[in-house]
Write a protein that binds this DNA or RNA. Structure first.
Length: 266
DNA sequence: GTCCCGTTAC
DNA sequence: GTAACGGGAC
Protein backbone atom coordinates (compact mmCIF):
# COMPACT_ATOMS: atom_id res chain seq x y z
CA UNK A 1 0.00 0.00 0.00
CA UNK A 2 1.12 3.51 -0.77
CA UNK A 3 1.86 5.60 2.30
CA UNK A 4 -0.53 8.52 2.21
CA UNK A 5 1.94 11.37 1.80
CA UNK A 6 0.62 14.73 0.69
CA UNK A 7 2.61 14.38 -2.51
CA UNK A 8 0.88 11.11 -3.36
CA UNK A 9 -2.49 12.59 -2.55
CA UNK A 10 -1.94 15.69 -4.66
CA UNK A 11 -0.68 13.75 -7.64
CA UNK A 12 -3.63 11.36 -7.49
CA UNK A 13 -6.05 14.30 -7.34
CA UNK A 14 -4.35 15.91 -10.33
CA UNK A 15 -4.48 12.68 -12.28
CA UNK A 16 -8.19 12.13 -11.61
CA UNK A 17 -9.22 15.71 -12.46
CA UNK A 18 -7.07 15.69 -15.58
CA UNK A 19 -8.73 12.50 -16.73
CA UNK A 20 -12.14 13.88 -15.85
CA UNK A 21 -11.72 17.01 -18.00
CA UNK A 22 -11.80 14.79 -21.06
CA UNK A 23 -14.09 12.02 -19.87
CA UNK A 24 -16.82 13.41 -17.65
CA UNK A 25 -20.28 11.95 -18.01
CA UNK A 26 -23.38 14.13 -18.10
CA UNK A 27 -26.36 13.18 -15.90
CA UNK A 28 -29.45 15.24 -15.06
CA UNK A 29 -28.77 15.04 -11.31
CA UNK A 30 -25.42 16.69 -11.95
CA UNK A 31 -27.17 19.73 -13.40
CA UNK A 32 -28.67 20.59 -10.03
CA UNK A 33 -27.56 20.98 -6.43
CA UNK A 34 -31.07 21.14 -5.06
CA UNK A 35 -31.13 18.85 -2.01
CA UNK A 36 -34.49 17.34 -2.91
CA UNK A 37 -33.38 16.36 -6.41
CA UNK A 38 -30.12 14.96 -5.05
CA UNK A 39 -32.07 12.91 -2.50
CA UNK A 40 -34.25 11.44 -5.26
CA UNK A 41 -31.24 10.60 -7.41
CA UNK A 42 -29.32 8.92 -4.58
CA UNK A 43 -32.21 6.65 -3.65
CA UNK A 44 -32.63 5.75 -7.32
CA UNK A 45 -28.94 5.09 -7.80
CA UNK A 46 -28.73 2.55 -4.97
CA UNK A 47 -28.18 -0.85 -6.56
CA UNK A 48 -29.07 0.59 -9.95
CA UNK A 49 -26.74 1.61 -12.77
CA UNK A 50 -26.75 5.30 -13.66
CA UNK A 51 -27.86 4.97 -17.32
CA UNK A 52 -30.99 3.15 -16.16
CA UNK A 53 -31.84 5.94 -13.73
CA UNK A 54 -31.67 8.91 -16.14
CA UNK A 55 -35.17 8.74 -17.64
CA UNK A 56 -36.82 7.69 -14.36
CA UNK A 57 -35.20 10.60 -12.55
CA UNK A 58 -36.38 13.10 -15.16
CA UNK A 59 -39.96 11.87 -15.03
CA UNK A 60 -40.00 11.70 -11.25
CA UNK A 61 -38.81 15.25 -10.59
CA UNK A 62 -41.13 16.56 -13.27
CA UNK A 63 -44.19 15.00 -11.64
CA UNK A 64 -42.96 15.62 -8.10
CA UNK A 65 -40.82 18.78 -8.32
CA UNK A 66 -40.34 19.26 -4.57
CA UNK A 67 -40.59 17.69 -1.13
CA UNK A 68 -44.15 18.94 -0.62
CA UNK A 69 -45.55 17.37 -3.78
CA UNK A 70 -43.87 14.04 -3.05
CA UNK A 71 -44.89 14.05 0.60
CA UNK A 72 -48.57 14.29 -0.24
CA UNK A 73 -48.55 12.14 -3.38
CA UNK A 74 -50.58 8.96 -3.91
CA UNK A 75 -48.47 5.87 -3.40
CA UNK A 76 -49.92 4.43 -6.58
CA UNK A 77 -48.48 7.24 -8.65
CA UNK A 78 -45.09 7.04 -6.97
CA UNK A 79 -44.81 3.30 -7.54
CA UNK A 80 -45.91 3.70 -11.14
CA UNK A 81 -43.12 6.18 -11.76
CA UNK A 82 -40.70 3.88 -9.96
CA UNK A 83 -41.77 0.84 -11.95
CA UNK A 84 -38.80 -0.66 -13.78
CA UNK A 85 -36.14 0.51 -11.35
CA UNK A 86 -36.50 -2.43 -8.98
CA UNK A 87 -36.23 -2.59 -5.18
CA UNK A 88 -39.59 -0.85 -4.90
CA UNK A 89 -39.30 -0.34 -1.15
CA UNK A 90 -36.94 2.50 -1.98
CA UNK A 91 -39.88 4.45 -3.40
CA UNK A 92 -41.80 4.06 -0.14
CA UNK A 93 -38.78 5.08 1.88
CA UNK A 94 -38.24 8.10 -0.36
CA UNK A 95 -41.75 9.39 0.28
CA UNK A 96 -41.38 8.75 4.02
CA UNK A 97 -38.12 10.70 3.97
CA UNK A 98 -39.83 13.59 2.18
CA UNK A 99 -42.59 13.60 4.81
CA UNK A 100 -40.06 13.57 7.66
CA UNK A 101 -38.11 16.46 6.15
CA UNK A 102 -41.28 18.51 5.67
CA UNK A 103 -42.14 17.89 9.29
CA UNK A 104 -38.77 18.94 10.64
CA UNK A 105 -38.92 22.00 8.37
CA UNK A 106 -35.32 21.97 7.16
CA UNK A 107 -33.23 19.68 5.05
CA UNK A 108 -30.89 17.60 7.25
CA UNK A 109 -27.28 18.75 7.06
CA UNK A 110 -25.45 15.97 8.90
CA UNK A 111 -24.95 12.30 7.99
CA UNK A 112 -26.43 11.31 11.36
CA UNK A 113 -29.69 13.15 10.73
CA UNK A 114 -30.01 11.74 7.24
CA UNK A 115 -29.32 8.20 8.40
CA UNK A 116 -32.29 8.35 10.73
CA UNK A 117 -34.41 7.94 7.62
CA UNK A 118 -35.14 4.50 6.26
CA UNK A 119 -33.40 3.83 2.99
CA UNK A 120 -30.54 6.22 3.70
CA UNK A 121 -27.42 4.45 4.93
CA UNK A 122 -23.91 5.76 5.42
CA UNK A 123 -23.05 5.91 1.75
CA UNK A 124 -26.22 7.76 0.71
CA UNK A 125 -26.12 10.16 3.65
CA UNK A 126 -22.61 11.26 2.80
CA UNK A 127 -23.33 11.37 -0.94
CA UNK A 128 -26.35 13.60 -0.47
CA UNK A 129 -24.37 16.11 1.57
CA UNK A 130 -21.50 16.03 -0.90
CA UNK A 131 -23.60 16.51 -4.03
CA UNK A 132 -26.10 18.95 -2.55
CA UNK A 133 -23.84 21.08 -0.35
CA UNK A 134 -20.29 20.28 -1.44
CA UNK A 135 -19.37 19.46 2.17
CA UNK A 136 -15.83 18.25 2.82
CA UNK A 137 -16.86 14.64 3.36
CA UNK A 138 -15.94 11.37 1.71
CA UNK A 139 -18.17 8.54 0.61
CA UNK A 140 -17.34 4.95 -0.28
CA UNK A 141 -19.39 2.66 -2.50
CA UNK A 142 -18.27 -0.49 -4.29
CA UNK A 143 -17.01 1.66 -7.16
CA UNK A 144 -14.82 3.87 -5.01
CA UNK A 145 -13.59 0.87 -3.02
CA UNK A 146 -12.45 -0.68 -6.29
CA UNK A 147 -10.54 2.50 -7.18
CA UNK A 148 -8.78 2.61 -3.80
CA UNK A 149 -7.69 -1.00 -4.21
CA UNK A 150 -6.69 -0.69 -7.87
CA UNK A 151 -4.67 2.47 -7.17
CA UNK A 152 -2.97 0.76 -4.21
CA UNK A 153 -4.34 3.06 -1.54
CA UNK A 154 -5.97 0.01 0.01
CA UNK A 155 -6.10 -3.76 -0.32
CA UNK A 156 -8.99 -6.11 -0.98
CA UNK A 157 -8.97 -7.08 2.67
CA UNK A 158 -8.93 -3.49 3.99
CA UNK A 159 -11.75 -2.95 6.48
CA UNK A 160 -14.74 -0.71 5.83
CA UNK A 161 -13.57 1.64 8.55
CA UNK A 162 -10.12 2.02 7.03
CA UNK A 163 -11.52 2.50 3.53
CA UNK A 164 -13.56 5.47 4.73
CA UNK A 165 -10.56 6.92 6.51
CA UNK A 166 -8.37 6.63 3.42
CA UNK A 167 -11.11 8.05 1.18
CA UNK A 168 -11.45 11.05 3.48
CA UNK A 169 -7.77 11.86 3.19
CA UNK A 170 -7.96 11.90 -0.60
CA UNK A 171 -10.76 14.47 -0.85
CA UNK A 172 -9.55 17.87 -2.11
CA UNK A 173 -10.87 20.54 0.27
CA UNK A 174 -13.74 22.56 -1.15
CA UNK A 175 -14.08 20.32 -4.17
CA UNK A 176 -15.79 17.20 -2.83
CA UNK A 177 -18.69 17.42 -5.30
CA UNK A 178 -16.44 17.46 -8.37
CA UNK A 179 -14.10 14.97 -6.78
CA UNK A 180 -16.74 12.33 -6.20
CA UNK A 181 -18.33 12.81 -9.59
CA UNK A 182 -14.87 12.40 -11.11
CA UNK A 183 -14.16 9.28 -9.07
CA UNK A 184 -17.48 7.70 -9.99
CA UNK A 185 -16.76 8.24 -13.67
CA UNK A 186 -13.18 7.07 -13.40
CA UNK A 187 -14.16 3.90 -11.57
CA UNK A 188 -16.98 2.92 -13.84
CA UNK A 189 -15.16 3.69 -17.10
CA UNK A 190 -11.47 3.02 -16.45
CA UNK A 191 -11.43 0.59 -13.55
CA UNK A 192 -14.24 -1.84 -14.23
CA UNK A 193 -14.50 -5.15 -12.38
CA UNK A 194 -13.62 -6.89 -15.64
CA UNK A 195 -10.41 -4.85 -16.04
CA UNK A 196 -9.24 -4.93 -12.43
CA UNK A 197 -10.53 -8.28 -11.22
CA UNK A 198 -11.50 -6.54 -7.97
CA UNK A 199 -14.92 -7.92 -7.12
CA UNK A 200 -17.63 -6.52 -4.83
CA UNK A 201 -17.61 -7.91 -1.30
CA UNK A 202 -20.92 -9.75 -1.52
CA UNK A 203 -22.70 -11.78 -4.13
CA UNK A 204 -26.42 -11.62 -4.82
CA UNK A 205 -28.54 -14.73 -4.59
CA UNK A 206 -30.25 -16.18 -7.63
CA UNK A 207 -33.08 -14.05 -8.98
CA UNK A 208 -35.00 -16.63 -10.98
CA UNK A 209 -37.63 -18.35 -8.86
CA UNK A 210 -36.87 -16.13 -5.84
CA UNK A 211 -39.38 -14.19 -3.75
CA UNK A 212 -37.74 -11.10 -5.16
CA UNK A 213 -38.89 -12.06 -8.63
CA UNK A 214 -42.46 -12.71 -7.48
CA UNK A 215 -42.67 -9.49 -5.51
CA UNK A 216 -41.79 -7.60 -8.65
CA UNK A 217 -44.45 -9.44 -10.61
CA UNK A 218 -47.08 -8.94 -7.91
CA UNK A 219 -46.49 -5.20 -7.76
CA UNK A 220 -46.59 -4.94 -11.52
CA UNK A 221 -49.94 -6.76 -11.54
CA UNK A 222 -51.35 -4.43 -8.92
CA UNK A 223 -50.18 -1.37 -10.80
CA UNK A 224 -51.97 -2.63 -13.91
CA UNK A 225 -55.19 -3.86 -12.30
CA UNK A 226 -55.68 -1.46 -9.38
CA UNK A 227 -57.01 -4.28 -7.20
CA UNK A 228 -56.94 -8.05 -7.39
CA UNK A 229 -57.78 -11.09 -5.22
CA UNK A 230 -55.33 -13.70 -4.08
CA UNK A 231 -57.07 -16.33 -6.21
CA UNK A 232 -56.57 -14.23 -9.32
CA UNK A 233 -52.91 -13.87 -8.46
CA UNK A 234 -52.50 -17.60 -7.99
CA UNK A 235 -53.80 -18.15 -11.51
CA UNK A 236 -51.74 -15.44 -13.16
CA UNK A 237 -48.47 -16.15 -11.35
CA UNK A 238 -48.89 -19.92 -11.14
CA UNK A 239 -47.80 -19.92 -7.52
CA UNK A 240 -48.78 -21.91 -4.43
CA UNK A 241 -51.26 -20.16 -2.15
CA UNK A 242 -49.16 -20.53 1.02
CA UNK A 243 -46.13 -19.17 -0.74
CA UNK A 244 -48.05 -16.24 -2.19
CA UNK A 245 -49.66 -15.44 1.15
CA UNK A 246 -46.36 -15.15 2.96
CA UNK A 247 -44.98 -12.88 0.26
CA UNK A 248 -48.09 -10.67 0.31
CA UNK A 249 -48.01 -10.43 4.08
CA UNK A 250 -44.47 -9.07 4.00
CA UNK A 251 -45.35 -6.59 1.28
CA UNK A 252 -48.27 -5.30 3.35
CA UNK A 253 -46.02 -4.94 6.37
CA UNK A 254 -43.52 -2.94 4.31
CA UNK A 255 -46.28 -0.53 3.26
CA UNK A 256 -45.86 -1.47 -0.37
CA UNK A 257 -49.39 -2.79 -0.74
CA UNK A 258 -52.58 -3.02 1.30
CA UNK A 259 -55.38 -5.51 1.83
CA UNK A 260 -59.03 -4.50 1.94
CA UNK A 261 -61.40 -7.44 2.40
CA UNK A 262 -60.30 -9.99 -0.16
CA UNK A 263 -58.71 -7.42 -2.45
CA UNK A 264 -55.09 -6.40 -2.59
CA UNK A 265 -54.06 -3.02 -4.01
CA UNK A 266 -51.17 -0.57 -3.77
C1' DG B 1 -25.70 -13.35 7.10
C1' DT B 2 -30.06 -12.98 4.23
C1' DC B 3 -33.48 -10.63 1.95
C1' DC B 4 -34.82 -6.79 -1.29
C1' DC B 5 -35.38 -5.89 -8.44
C1' DG B 6 -34.88 -5.36 -13.40
C1' DT B 7 -31.83 -4.62 -17.23
C1' DT B 8 -27.75 -5.49 -19.82
C1' DA B 9 -23.82 -8.39 -21.02
C1' DC B 10 -22.10 -12.72 -22.02
C1' DG C 1 -30.60 -19.16 -20.70
C1' DT C 2 -27.66 -17.41 -16.83
C1' DA C 3 -24.51 -14.24 -14.65
C1' DA C 4 -23.23 -9.57 -13.48
C1' DC C 5 -24.38 -5.18 -11.71
C1' DG C 6 -25.35 -2.14 -7.45
C1' DG C 7 -26.67 -0.08 -0.91
C1' DG C 8 -29.61 -0.78 3.03
C1' DA C 9 -32.77 -3.00 6.51
C1' DC C 10 -33.25 -6.42 9.77
Amino acid sequence: MKPLTSTKITSFQKKIFKWWEANRRVFPWRETTEPYAILVSELMLQQTQAPRVVEKFNQFVEVFPDLESLAKAQKFEILQLWSGLGYNRRAIWLQEAAQMIIERKEFPNTPEELQKMKGIGKYSAHSILIFAFNYDLATVDTNIRRILVAEKFAEEKTSERDLWEIAKKLVPKGRSRDWHNALMDYGSIELTVAKTGIKPLTKQGKFKGSDREYRGKILKLLLESKKITINQMITVLNLQEVKLESILQKMVKENLIKKKGKYYSV
